[in-house]
Amino acid sequence: MTDSKHPELHVYEEQRDDLMDVAMGFGVFFAVLFVIAIVATIITIAMR
Rank of each mutant, 00 (worst) to 15 (best):
V32I: 09
E13Q: 15
E8N: 13
M20W: 08
V11H: 12
V39D: 10
A37L: 07
L33R: 01
H6R: 14
T41M: 11
M20A: 04
E8I: 15
R16Q: 04
I36F: 03
V35M: 01
H10M: 13
V28T: 11
A23T: 01
V22Y: 07
V22I: 11
G27V: 03
R16C: 03
Y12S: 15
V22Q: 05
T44V: 13
D21E: 04
V11L: 13
Q15S: 06
L19G: 06
D17W: 01
M24R: 07
L33F: 03
F29P: 03
A37Q: 11
L19N: 07
E14V: 09
M1V: 14
E13C: 10
A46H: 12
V35Q: 00
A37Y: 08
V35G: 02
D17K: 00
M20K: 09
M20N: 11
V32A: 05
M47L: 12
V28Q: 07
H10C: 10
G25K: 03
I42H: 05
A40F: 13
H6E: 15
E8T: 13
I36A: 05
E13L: 12
A37W: 03
M20L: 09
R16M: 01
I42A: 13
D18S: 11
V35A: 01
F26Y: 10
L33P: 01
V11P: 07
V39R: 03
M47H: 15
Y12E: 13
Q15I: 08
F26S: 08
K5S: 06
F34K: 02
Y12L: 12
D21T: 06
I43M: 08
G25C: 11
A23M: 03
K5C: 14
D17E: 00
T44D: 12
Y12N: 15
R16I: 00
E8V: 13
S4P: 10
S4I: 12
T44P: 07
V35N: 01
E14P: 02
A37M: 06
T2Y: 10
